[in-house]
Amino acid sequence: MRCLTIRQPWATLVALGEKNYETRSWRTTYRGELAIHAGLKIDKAACRREPFQSILAKHGYTEENLPTGVIIATGKLKECHEITGLNSVAQWIGENERAIGDYTEGRFAWELENVRPLVHHVPAKGRLGFWEYPLSEEEEHF
């Protein structure tokens, strides 16, 4: 399965359905199934800022209990939007989404859909960019 490593707390926000766009500096033509991997690093300063802190707390998370080094969700990469200015994205993102993503002009907003958190996280070593996770027969339920 194709995977994407995302730093915490952003990975958990995606898994919880609180973040529907992952912003990146690069465009992708890939569309389809995607596993979300929580990287090993946690941006603790972000976890202490609003709206991050309130959103995480609503789901029982703090910087201390965020999962790391595991695949935490699956979903689909639906579309990749080029950001041409904040006005270009204001029509399709909400206030919280704008506050927890980097919508700087020239970046790309990857639209995610049907994201479902995994009941059992899958340990995996993340990588930059897309990477493949080989599914065993037991993990076909992803």
Rank of each mutant, 00 (worst) to 15 (best):
I42F: 10
A46Q: 08
I42D: 04
A45C: 08
L86S: 15
E132M: 10
A109C: 08
T68L: 05
M1D: 02
I93E: 08
E50F: 09
P134T: 12
G32A: 06
I55T: 06
G69V: 09
T68P: 01
T12Y: 03
F130V: 04
P117G: 08
E22D: 09
H121Q: 12
G32K: 04
V14H: 01
G101K: 02
E33Q: 14
T62D: 06
L66N: 04
L34N: 03
L135W: 09
W26I: 10
G126H: 01
E22Q: 08
K41P: 04
N114E: 15
K76Q: 14
I36P: 04
C3W: 01
H59D: 09
K41N: 15
I100P: 07
G94N: 11
L135N: 10
R27S: 13
A99M: 12
A109Q: 01
G129H: 07
L86P: 11
E105M: 05
A99F: 01
E97A: 02
E97R: 01
L128P: 11
C3Y: 02
S54Y: 07
P51F: 03
S136P: 07
W26K: 11
S25N: 13
L4W: 06
E97T: 06
A109F: 00
V14K: 00
Y61P: 02
I72Y: 01
R31W: 08
L40T: 14
G85V: 04
L56A: 05
K76S: 13
A73W: 05
E113P: 09
P134S: 13
H59E: 07
T12P: 01
V115S: 07
G32L: 10
R49S: 13
K44W: 15
E64A: 13
E33P: 13
K78V: 13
E132V: 13
P117K: 10
R2V: 13
L135S: 11
G126W: 01
W131K: 08
G106L: 05
P9F: 00
H120N: 15
K41R: 14
H120P: 07
R98E: 14
T29D: 14
